[in-house]
């Protein structure tokens, strides 16, 4: 680092980089600070454990937290096995230049860039209407899974590709089957990639409103089954701030809870990935 202070231009470049870093930190602090400043006072045990009243202006968010949890569970339960399978196919079963693999990869990249409202309308037409799921947590969770899949697959595939080829050759030299190699060697080594995908996907799913307003819906009652409609936390925040006069205080409090949840889940996911990687590699 000290070497770069040698000439004047280096100084300028260094200052610029620090400036950019500070701007990023500033934006982050401003957004989180604003939400926490306005919302922290509203977060209490009562807020977290009671149902909303008076269109959400009073009361808490417990049914909304449960609905959000169920939506996310459905989404991940469906997306992770499919995502992992697709990533194994792309990284291990086809070469980078294989025609079919390339087509799949291009479609995934296109899907990543599709706005979430399009997924919402697809879910509304396909899951809610055509498959007759109505406005339900299942319909919303499956829509989220479609949305999260491309991110998950691409990140996991990247995870597999970063595993050095020597691992595969070494395993083959020892006479291990491809399945054993995959399970004991490649999968744990690609775990961080999968976890990155899960974290990004979870983030996208938790922040989603547009795709859910048409699928899992707006009902703020405690869900009794997965076929019930349930309101996601981000949709609750959107409705309170944009549609309910006098809903700002609880919108801010809910936003604090959402940010808190995201931080906890990200920390947990990276801890699990690190932990797993260490133990698996040691054991293998």
């Amino acid at each position: 680092m000290h070497k770069s202070f040698g000439s004047n231009t280096d100084w300028v470049a260094c200052l610029l980089m620090w400036g950019i870093g500070s701007v990023i930190l500033g934006i982050f602090s401003l957004v989180v600070g604003d939400v926490v400043w306005h919302g922290l006072a509203g977060v209490s045990w009562e807020f977290l454990s009671t149902a909303p009243r008076d269109a959400g202006r009073a009361g808490g968010i417990i049914p909304i937290l449960i609905s959000t949890g169920l939506l996310l569970s459905i989404c991940l339960v469906v997306a992770i096995p499919i995502g992992l399978g697709a990533a194994i196919f792309l990284a291990e079963c086809t070469s980078e230049h294989h025609a079919f693999g390339r087509v799949v990869r291009i479609s995934l990249d296109v899907l990543t860039a599709v706005p979430s409202i399009v997924f919402g309308l697809f879910g509304y037409a396909f899951f809610s209407h055509m498959l007759g799921m109505g406005f339900s947590l299942v319909s919303g969770g499956l829509t989220l899974a479609c949305m999260v899949l491309p991110i998950l697959i691409r990140a996991t595939e990247e995870g597999f590709r970063t595993v050095p080829n020597e691992y595969r050759l070494g395993a083959a030299a020892l006479g291990l089957s491809r399945m054993t190699t995959l399970m004991t060697l490649l999968l744990p080594a690609a775990m961080p990639g999968l976890m990155v995908g899960v974290i990004l996907g979870t983030g996208r799913a938790m922040a989603e409103t547009a795709a859910l307003i048409y699928t899992s819906g707006y009902v703020d009652r405690m869900p009794e089954s997965l076929m019930d409609s349930g309101r996601a936390l981000s949709l609750h925040i959107f409705d309170l701030s944009m549609n309910v006069p006098g809903g700002n205080a609880n919108a801010y409090a809910s936003a604090v809870v959402l940010i808190g949840l995201l931080l906890v889940m990200n920390t947990l996911a990276s801890w699990v990935a690190g932990h797993w990687l260490k133990r698996r590699m040691f054991w293998a």
């Binding site: 569970s73 459905i74 339960v77 947590l137 299942v138 009794e224 089954s225 997965l226 076929m227 019930d228």
Partner: peptide, 16 residues
């Protein structure tokens, strides 16, 4: 466990 929960969910929806 998740799959079991899913099935439970679908079952109770029939009752609903």
């Amino acid at each position: 466990c998740f799959l079991f929960l899913l099935m439970m969910g679908c079952e109770s929806s029939d009752r609903m």
